[in-house]
Design a protein around this nucleic acid. Structure first.
Length: 952
RNA sequence: GCCCGAGUGGUGGAAUGGCAGACACGGCGGACUCAAAAUCCGCUGCUCGAAAGGGCGUGUGGGUUCGACUCCCACCUCGGGCACCA
């Protein structure tokens, strides 16, 4: 602000709306909303029924933000963009007659708190509590109308008790593919015991002993343990998910080297839901681009599995997956993933006659097994960046063995190469260089034969051909197009027992365990036989032990073994429990859950956060999931979910997966969690880089004539996402102090459409601040602080503008177009300014609807003015204004007159007049008449109320 | 490399087949003031013109249409996502 109150002869009116007054009003209303419990949302039954209880009979609307990780930095103005958007929408929804659920929790487990703890010795629970307190303070300053009782933190034992409870529901389930849903494993055991179901692995149930039966059931659970090739990061002492490793092979957090190594891990069988996760995207209102991202991530592909026999190894088969079974005649070699289990079985002890290049780059003297182990080492070390820079350069090693192509009976060499991944399909491919770009590059590199099986068009070059065409060199398939050839090949494979049509997914099972301290402990113990046993529900939560040394055992040695911090809490790990058969000794699971676990279901806990008997009361769940709402029946419980697009795949997919398991088991009544998803844009800001390429503090950069300097040194300007790393943060606290919260809220909503990234520019804020100042001045005498409103009617033109504004703002609010809503309100307010200048007072007929429409955006000033204009109670539940249709119509409308598509004149016509009247009015214009006199008119187009176009 | 999205005044943006540039910032001018600030009023896409008025204009090039920022094709640039997915 540039108020110069300190200078002597300056008179600022005593009641001018400036930062000081705004802050006083804001503090007053924030205190009052809290004291009056204004935004408590009633449940229809159960624990949270006592305040605002009459609203529980209204249709419900559930508005949700992606909850934040409470970092030590606090919020910058980029964070609340979505929060303000949902707050505006929630306030608008309350005024539109909905019982609105809106609150804010904290995704409080996670690596940053743990790393900070390792550095400083401060316990993560202490820093987390401090950070949450700071976030709550900042959110309160922003004027959020949250139901504070419903806030949760995922690291709170009263919350993660239920995360563990859900884990056990999933652990105790299996996927019944015939019924296409998850069912309790107790039912699986009962069916096997009762003989109504046979094991699906060829064994006979009655011949299995108790241990084998348990192993069978364990192997079918939705949560299971498996050796997984994981990203082991010795420096963090933990295993990272693929998604947490950067493109150059470093940990996303901390940039430490990451090595691949096999390790026994907990997995969740999300792949069982692959098909439903794709299909049910049709039920939700998400943007097509987000749906497409999820579909691509799940990556369904339809094709066939083909069995190849291995020459000189009787009974050893390799099964491959291919999307192009029609090209089998052109399979001239085969590639296994380097870690494929059959490699060690079939690798030759010495090279058969083969080109030297096939032996790899490890020297001519090494044997095939040595070459294999060298290559595996090479692959484990190779970073993603190095692979990327290789481009079309392919690497691999011939393992000295041959497979038989079942269609040609020819021997084809078997290679290992890192372009084949163990986690996709069967970890083995048949290579068809003529019809696949990667196989083509590999074949060219290693001098392997290329046989076309699809006829490319005339003039096609020396390249792989991926298009359609008649089959050639393919025996009985010759002449068929790709689709028909695929079908015929699959029939042939199935008849001959060489394969079958099948579908695979890119999606892999979810690696669920972490070797960290600051996460949910698994509710799992091990008995003497080392088989996992679920901790009974009654013993939940399994609380994190209060260890002193919670740091993971970090190491520079890539061969070091992961040791979770919890393993060192021996008093906790070794325990005596009575699991129904007397006190016995058990060992606790020492892995913890990933951060995604807590965020998979927080929206369900918001429904009934204080319930100690259930995750959520079933009746409460039913109300918020299926309770009457405005439109058609919905598949998702949350009506509007707003958050960053960076969660487009992982979080949203994991949460959908958990929700579907809970749905299958009857714990929730909708098949999807989030009905409407909206991705807000990022707040960008200028950032400055010095000569060394290091970011400098943006607030201290000086501009002169387009040249930017920092401490006298020239710096370069860039644009990037606001945040600590670019040193360009602006905090909401500073803006609230300098202009007021309402100004900040209004500015963030006015900057642009919610879903578009926008540049922060503090100097633009003054515009919306002036809007509020003018609104205040229109309703209140700046000298006395008393409202000057009149009950006299307004002129017709103003009344028309009022009603047009109401109609437009209502539509904008519904569609989250807050930027244009602010523009419409500004227009109306500017009109009101002229009316006040003319009449000396403001017509209540305009002021009141204007206040009510402004209230969702700038609630504090709206409440204050509502009170000053004579209303004792809050406007939070006042009905949102409705337009009077009679005043939406004009007497006269201006239309454009085009001659040959060019606008040449504008004329007035009576509203609702017919085409002939439009044309007559247009022809009556002197300029138009002059133009039309030059040449005859061939055709006339009239769009009523819009334009007339004369074509000559 | 593949996939998705976006390119409109000096700036943020508005208009989803029908009068391009709403609203705001910035700029220019005026009123008020000794003066400045604040406030209020007016002008502000580029260009030719003293003016009246004309020409051009939504990344580029084509196309569909009486009419295209909007739909289609190709290209360019920027942003985001993915990593050899058979």
């Amino acid at each position: 602000m540039t108020e110069r109150a300190a200078e002597p002869n300056i008179e600022i009116p005593a009641h001018r709306y400036n930062a000081a007054l705004a802050n006083a009003i804001e503090a007053k209303w924030q205190d009052r909303w809290e004291a009056d419990r204004t935004f408590y949302t009633p449940n229809p039954t159960g624990l949270l029924t006592e305040v605002n209880s009459e609203r529980a009979s209204l249709p419900k609307r559930y508005v949700l933000d992606m909850f934040p990780y409470p970092s030590g930095e606090g919020l910058h103005v980029g964070h609340p963009l979505g929060f303000i958007g949902t707050d505006v929408y929630a306030r608008f929804s309350r005024m539109s007659g909905f019982n609105v659920l809106h609150t804010m929790g904290f995704d409080a487990f996670g690596l940053p708190a743990e790393q900070y703890a390792v550095r400083t010795g401060q316990h993560p629970s202490v820093t987390t509590a401090e950070n949450i307190a700071n976030y709550r303070r900042q959110l309160r300053v922003l004027g959020m109308a949250h139901d504070s009782r419903r806030s949760i933190a995922t690291s709170d034992p009263s919350y993660y008790r239920w995360t563990q409870w859900i884990f056990l529901r999933i652990f105790n389930s299996w996927y019944d593919h015939e019924a296409d849903r998850a069912r309790p494993v107790s039912e699986l055991s009962a069916e096997l015991d009762g003989g109504t179901r046979e094991p699906d692995d060829g064994s006979t149930w009655s011949e299995l002993d108790d241990g084998e039966r348990r192993d069978y059931v364990d192997a079918h659970r939705l949560v299971y343990r498996a050796e997984a090739n994981v990203n082991w990061c010795p420096a963090l002492g933990t295993v990272l998910a693929n998604e947490e490793v950067t493109a150059d092979g470093l940990s996303e957090i901390g940039n430490h080297p990451v090595y691949k190594r096999p390790l026994k891990q907990w997995m969740m069988r999300i792949t069982a839901y692959a098909e439903r996760l794709i299909e049910d995207l049709d039920l939700v209102d998400w943007t097509d681009s987000i749906k497409l991202m999820q579909r691509n991530w799940i990556g369904r592909s339809v094709g066939a599995e083909v069995r190849f026999t291995v020459a000189k190894h009787d009974g050893v088969d390799i099964t491959v997956f291919t999307t192009r079974p029609d090209t089998l005649f052109g399979a001239t070699y085969m590639v296994l993933a380097p870690e494929h289990p059959l490699v060690d079985t079939i690798v030759a002890s010495s090279w058969p006659g083969c080109p030297a290049a096939w032996r790899g780059v490890f020297g001519v003297d090494v044997s095939p097994p040595e070459a294999v182990s060298h290559y595996r080492e090479y692959v484990a070390k190779k970073s993603e960046l190095e692979r990327q820079s290789e481009g079309k350069e392919k690497t691999g090693v011939f393992i000295g063995a041959y497979a038989i192509n079942p269609t040609t009976n020819e021997k084809i060499p078997i290679f290992i190469a890192d372009y084949v991944l163990m986690g996709y399909g069967t970890g083995a491919i048949m290579a068809v260089p003529a019809q696949d770009a990667r196989d083509w590059d590999f074949a060219k590199q290693f001098g392997l034969p290329i046989v076309r099986t699809v006829q490319p068009p005339e003039g096609f070059g020396d390249e792989p051909y991926l298009g359609d065409g008649p089959a050639i060199n393919s025996g009985p398939l010759d002449g068929l197009n790709v689709v028909d050839a695929k079908r015929k090949m699959i029939e042939g494979l199935e008849r001959g027992g060489w394969g079958r049509g099948t579908t695979t997914y890119k999606l892999r099972d979810w690696l669920f365990s972490r070797q960290r301290y600051w996460g949910e402990p698994f509710p799992i113990v091990y008995g003497d036989d080392d088989r996992p046993i679920a901790v009974p529900d009654a013993m939940l939560p399994v609380e994190l032990p209060e260890v002193v040394d919670f740091a993971p055992r970090i190491s520079d040695d890539p061969d070091a073994l992961p040791e979770p911090p919890l393993a060192r809490a021996e008093d906790w790990v070794f325990t005596e429990l009575d699991l129904g058969d007397g006190l016995k000794k058990y060992r606790r699971e020492t892995n913890t859950m990933p951060q995604w676990a807590g965020s998979c279901w927080y929206y369900l806990r918001y429904l009934d956060p204080t319930n100690e008997d259930a995750m959520v009361d079933p009746q409460v769940e039913k109300y918020w999931a299926t309770g009457s709402r405005d439109g058609a029946a919905a598949a998702g419980v949350v009506d509007l979910y707003v958050g960053g697009v960076e969660h487009a795949v992982l979080h949203l997919l994991y949460a959908r997966f958990w929700h579907k398991v809970l749905y299958d088991l009857g714990h929730v009544s909708t098949s999807e969690p989030f009905q409407r998803l909206y991705n807000q844009g990022y707040v960008l800001a200028a950032a400055y880089v010095d000569a060394r390429g290091v970011y400098v503090e943006a607030t201290e950069v000086v501009e002169r004539d387009g040249v930017f300097t920092f401490e006298g040194e020239p710096v370069t300007r860039e644009h990037g996402k606001m945040g600590k790393s670019l040193k360009n943060s602006v905090t909401p606290d500073d803006i609230c102090t300098e202009y007021g919260t309402d100004t900040l809220r209004l500015y963030e909503m006015f900057m642009g459409p919610l879903d578009v990234s926008r540049a922060w520019n503090t100097s633009d804020i003054i515009g919306v601040h002036r809007f509020l100042q003018r609104l205040w001045r229109n309703a209140v005498d700046e000298d006395t602080g008393v409202a000057h409103v009149t009950d006299l009617p307004v002129d017709d033109e103003t009344r028309r503008l009022l009603n047009r504004t109401i109609a437009a703002v209502r539509a904008d609010m519904t569609n989250l177009r807050f930027n244009t809503a602010v523009a419409r309100l500004t227009e109306l307010n500017n009109r009101l300014t002229s009316v006040v200048a003319r009449d000396g007072s403001a017509p209540r007929e305009v002021v009141e609807p204007l206040l009510l429409m402004t209230a969702p955006l700038a609630p504090h000033i709206a409440e204050e003015l509502w009170q000053l204009t004579g209303h004792p109670s809050t406007l939070a539940y006042e009905p949102f204004p409705e337009a009077d249709a009679a005043w939406l119509l004009e007497d006269q409308v201006e239309i454009g007159v085009q001659v040959d598509g060019k606008v040449r004149a504008r004329v007035m016509v009576p509203a609702g007049s017919d085409d002939a009247a439009h044309e007559a009015a247009a022809r009556a214009d002197a300029k138009v008449a002059a133009l039309l006199a030059e040449k005859p008119v061939r055709k006339t187009i009239v769009v009523a109320g819009r334009l007339v176009n004369f074509i000559r």
